[in-house]
């Protein structure tokens, strides 16, 4: 399985995801919407597994490869949120975002290296990247939803249910960020002897983690101050972008991070 075959898997996955998203809007079709979406995700996962086998290593090293996982986990995050909270719009959103990242991979695949340096050959590598990608997907979803509620033309105040959804998504996203960060710390101890070295990636990961944690602690005491809540969600998401790929361009991180690829 190589990158040339991505287009066919992408078309098939997108077809099922779109059908699932459309079905979610109809009454009493939750089960069908779920299974259509799950089928789309399974097809996409089959491509990832194929890449894994053909590369003889997990496809998690380059930006293009992590985008594959991001597309996949966006769809999984959408299915998970839909299964748990039944938000009708979430499957449409996750489909759109997954397709955007698939398109980036189709049109700008970048370098796809086949080698995997010894430090990356660890039992922590796969779960560390996967939980981070899942967290990014959830926190991306909540950032877009917060932006919509903040800027919508009706200027309507968010309902309690809408804010509860923001809080839930941030809570789940943050718990996955925590899993990723701690797995990274345990891995770093095995690889280099230190849990935390304040490498630029780690510094921005800490800033992101603290910022979302600040949101979770701020919400109970500023229940009606939506502007601060939305601003903090978006600010935290900007920090997350710095952590994910921003450090590749940041002058202060050039040549000093073991996380720049």
């Amino acid at each position: 399985m190589m990158w040339e075959q991505l287009i066919w898997f992408a078309i098939a996955s997108t077809l099922f995801w779109v059908l699932g998203a459309a079905t979610a809007w109809r009454e009493n079709r939750q089960g069908r919407a779920m299974w259509l979406s799950v089928t789309g995700s399974l097809i996409f996962f089959a491509f990832i597994v194929g890449m894994w086998i053909s590369l003889d290593r997990p496809p998690m090293r380059t930006m293009g490869e992590t985008r594959l996982w991001y597309s996949f986990f966006l769809s999984i995050a959408g299915i998970f949120v839909y299964a748990r909270w039944r938000y009708k719009w979430i499957l449409s959103f996750s489909t759109m975002m997954s397709v955007v990242f698939i398109c980036i991979n189709l049109f700008k695949p970048e370098i796809h290296d086949k080698t995997l340096m010894p430090a990356l050959q660890s039992v922590w590598f796969v779960p560390h990247v996967i939980v981070y990608m899942f967290a990014y997907a959830l926190l991306g979803a909540v950032a877009v939803f917060a932006l919509y509620m903040w800027l919508r033309s009706s200027r309507r105040e968010p309902a309690d249910e809408e804010m509860a959804m923001c809080d839930n998504l941030v809570r789940v996203g943050w718990s996955f960020l925590t899993l990723g960060m701690i797995m990274g710390a345990l891995w770093a101890k095995e690889a280099w002897g230190d849990y935390w070295t304040w490498d630029p990636k780690e510094t921005w990961a800490a800033a992101t983690w603290l910022s979302y944690l600040c949101y979770l602690h701020l919400r109970p005491i500023t229940k009606r101050d939506y502007n601060i809540a939305f601003a903090l969600i978006l600010f935290s998401f900007l920090l997350l972008q710095m952590c994910w790929y921003g450090i590749n361009f940041l002058p202060s991180a050039q040549g000093v991070s073991v996380h720049t690829y």
Binding site: W198, P200, T203, W204, A206, A207, L210, S211, L213, C214, H217, L239, M242, I247, L250, P251, S252, A253, V256
Partner: peptide, 15 residues
């Protein structure tokens, strides 16, 4: 928490 966010952002922006 907010003070730590500010310090880590300064940390990240400074070589």
């Amino acid at each position: 928490l907010a003070s730590m966010v500010v310090m880590t952002v300064v940390f990240g922006l400074t070589r």
